[in-house]
Design a protein around this nucleic acid. Sequence first.
DNA 1: CGGCCTCGAGTTCC
DNA 2: CTCGAGGCCG
Length: 672
Amino acid sequence: MPPSEIEARARELREQIDYHSRRYYEHDDPEIGDDEYDALLNELRALEAAHPELVTPQSPTQRVGGEPVSDLVKVRHLQRMLSLANAHNREELLAWVQRMRNYLAREGIAEPRFRFVAEPKIDGLAISLIYRDGVLERGTTRGNGEIGEDVTHNIRTIGQIPERLDQAPALVEVRGEVYMSLPDFAGLNERRAAAGLSTFMNPRNSAAGTIRQLDPRLAAERPLSFWAYQVGVTEGLELHSHWDALQWLAERGFPIHPDVKVLDSETEVIAQCEAWEERRGSLEFEIDGVVVKLDDYELQRRLGVVGREPRWAIAWKFPPTTAVTRLRAVHWNPGKFGDLHPYAELEPVQVGGVTIKLATLHNEEDLERKDIRPGEEVIVLRAGDVIPQVVSPAPHVAERGDRPDPPKVPAACPVCGTPTEKPEDSVFTRCPNHDCPGRRWQLLTSFAAVMDIDGLGEKLVTKFMELDWVRTAADFYRLETDQVASLEGFGEKSAAKLIAAIEASKRQPFGRVLFAVGIEEVGNVTGTALAQQFRTVDALLAAPVEAIDETPGVGPKMAAKIHRQLADPAMRSLLDDLRSLGLALEEEGPAPGEGALSGQTFVLTGTLPTLTREEATAMLQAQGAKVTGSVSKKTSYVVAGDSAGSKLAKAESLGVPVLDEDGLRALLDGAD
DNA sequence: CGGCCTCGAGTTCC
DNA sequence: CTCGAGGCCG
């Protein structure tokens, strides 16, 4: 780069960084992720390192520790706020305990009795609160540990933080974490979205931005919470252990997490850390680890501090939920209806405790937007959920001049080789071949899943297709026990079991069959609605578009699409075949408006003790109830089983009644 | 016409 | 679970 360009680039970077830094800190509303931000900052640092003459005092690189410019008053902490060493696994945790023993042995304390306290490490921000004579005097952010910022005006808006303390000493410093709970975060974002405002990226940013607002009225509108976790400087108060301190805090009304406990051995500590890790996803706040402290203050004092870290505490860090890995290739697969979907083949990498090799890329637009290229490093994320996602190129690759070519949309179907088409109105390029084996495989596996055929999974479908035993879903019902038993890995018994499962699926209601055969726009709900509306497959097939349009939940667009697909001879013959094979192609359930539970909407969540989701759905639908997937205020009941997640929380927040399996049965019995 | 609500579809790992 | 799009209600 010629010098003039370098200078221009440096200026550009400074402007961008300042802009994003303001978005983040002042407007509390970042447009880009931390990684992207860091990439900008790193590029600027690199430029400035190579060309020191470009460094200006105002450059973002010159701010101490990358702290943002701010009008908040700087305050020196009475006692430095320390950081923590990390342990990533049990070996490192045991090594920490051993280090403490060794250290104390050298200090002449042999065989000390260790008691520990393990607390969740909340992803919020650390705050120090000073109470003088029981009155909250000041709240300060951690800052760099030595100097923080005075945020007392915002601290006072947090209801969980007492203004006054009973039986308080002359001086006490309370430390804890200010955070935004996940429900509050979701609610805030919902309100913001409704008001046409941009939404926040994550609870931590949201909390950090809120606490640093200059105007407390803004902070008051944003729900913040608090957990206390330490007593710092005191005058006129004597405590002997961390646990005592926590009790003392609890007695004065500070929130202490109820599951924090004293542990007597490192084995218990490890078990506790692992337990927290397991609970991680079901807590109503984000945690990124567990803080383990030695309980006894005298031992803490003896152990002291090394650098900025106390020897007597450690943070058990959970595996990161993002990782950088190489994108090996982008592949394409046809879906049920021929749309080609790109997915990423990745160099296997550990993210959030599992190894990720594949990740969906959704569609071409998504692929283009992310600008990821095979051969380059990418950031892989496994958010609170389970599904891996490719987020973006790794920060450093975008700076490269000679990047590999972006992946190309295939000109021919990767499975059957038919030239692809891209309809005007679709984001997808598609394989137009209705007989494409890839497409048929998707249809058949989906059919097996929708019809709830036990044991008929992806592998078996593949095998049946290879042997050419199965071309359409109807062929499943033509399989014979002997035939299946002849397969490797199958015996007489397992073959009979599979055939029985296939037979059993014949009892699935008409609506479910309509869903299973693979009609675009027709899922569980629309299938059931069509079945109720038309009663028989003949009536449905004879129906003009206008009649289909009359179905609740179906409008003109869907009606046209459904009508066109039903006219397809292949679809007609499939439905015909299925009928002659004994599947239900007439509605036996109640007509619309009939049935004891008609007009009521149910949502199932979690695992019920004895019923499968499909069974419960069928039982409800038999009474005319509608079963949908998402909770809203129109939902009549949520049926919650074990490990129910966000839907249960939503039901509670909306005041929707929640049933367990017994409650459901009672309701169904009452309806008979 | 605008804005919620709902549905469908695809998807990973163990 | 999340996204986008279509339907429906005010």
